[in-house]
Nucleic acid binder design. Sequence first.
DNA 1: CGTGTGATTGACGCCTGTCAACGTCTGTGG
DNA 2: CCACAGACGTTGACAGGCGTCAATCACACG
Lengths: 235, 235
Amino acid sequence: MPDFIEPHTCAFCSQHSNSIFRHLTPEENLILEESKICTSYKKGDIIYSENNKIKGIYCVNKGIIKIFKTGIDCKEQIIAFAKTGDIVGYRSTLSGELACTTAKILEDAEVCFIPVDLILRFIKSNGNFAMDIIQYMSKELGEANNFITEIAQKTVRERLAEVLIKLYNDFGNSSEGYIAINLTREELANLVGTATESVIRLLSEFKSDQLIELKGRKIKLINLSKLERISNVFG
Amino acid sequence: MPDFIEPHTCAFCSQHSNSIFRHLTPEENLILEESKICTSYKKGDIIYSENNKIKGIYCVNKGIIKIFKTGIDCKEQIIAFAKTGDIVGYRSTLSGELACTTAKILEDAEVCFIPVDLILRFIKSNGNFAMDIIQYMSKELGEANNFITEIAQKTVRERLAEVLIKLYNDFGNSSEGYIAINLTREELANLVGTATESVIRLLSEFKSDQLIELKGRKIKLINLSKLERISNVFG
DNA sequence: CGTGTGATTGACGCCTGTCAACGTCTGTGG
DNA sequence: CCACAGACGTTGACAGGCGTCAATCACACG
């Protein structure tokens, strides 16, 4: 049950220096503020689902969102996580296609919805905004290409090591030194592209090799350089 | 050794109805015609390489180009093919990053180079052009997400069947009914994400199951529906 | 005719997915 | 307070897909 929240509690959209909306003119900003709809979501809520039409883009103010595709036997493949400052749903919105992913809340979130016509209007009226969108897409496309190469060429072991490092880089540590994202073993598997059991086995192997510490779902990296060597980074 | 060719032999850029340049104004078109550089490439030529700076985008007038990333042990992972009407190198050009892929000529090609500043100028001055770029990127991003899910969840057998169907859909048949793209077994493997020997074994298996015909590198699909069933298509 | 590249086949073994059983924890309802 | 269900985590057994290595063949080319 998403709750609508006061617009002013979502002040992110245009103010942060790395916001996708940072190049809007003051007038455009005013329009944005009037039109956007800020919503509060709980863990497990779904923002949009595969094969549905999306009527705008979502800008994440707070929380973590899991973006995944449903594959064979309904097995999820996690494509990305979105957190503060990220936008989701823009691909389908801008291409006019149906959503090819599902966006599900992983950690309670505040998300702004911006209608598609407004986005299109800004793209056409403001070249800098268009460029920001394009650069945002470029980044994702580059990451996707990397992902393809890695998943195609690396072993599960290498990929898991790499995923742990990436999660650490993206989400940092909590106060206790554990990676600040809470994933089930199954979700880790769906990110790495393997079976849950394989993740469990490799995690305990990493643990007995003194590379990580485990405390329930919490993971702490204690030998980053060796994990990097295992992950076999390239390019 | 690329040869420069007469500009007028590359009339594609702005005239075809599905060209990325179809929404340029007559004035912009004039500028494009003056600035673009059309080049003729031979099989094996490289248009740009990973980790190099790209100074513009390339529009394919004729030929086939292989886009790949170099992974572990220099094993290539083919990300895509580009053919008439496609643009390549735009991701790095627009993001200002170094190229994350290499573009190599598979079939003799004619390619137009358009300098980055011109592209940026058009994006900023012409919202429709910006939207076309965005939609082009959206399409690729969607395909990349699909690719990730498939490579992560499907067996090599399923992926090979699917790749054959995709190649058939993208390149059609030659006069003799063979798929109109000429790939080595190794390239097929680099596309599927597997070992060369696995491709060879599965191809002969498909052949003895009467699903395909083989004549050197040429492949003919003779039981499409069964191949589709094997490929286990979803979404 | 030698050389080199690509295609093919066989042998071998490890990685990894699958199945099954069991343990752990949490929340719910009697 | 206890029993139970259900979700999640863990471990073991097992087989088979698939990668690797090596040898051989096919074919083009200088």
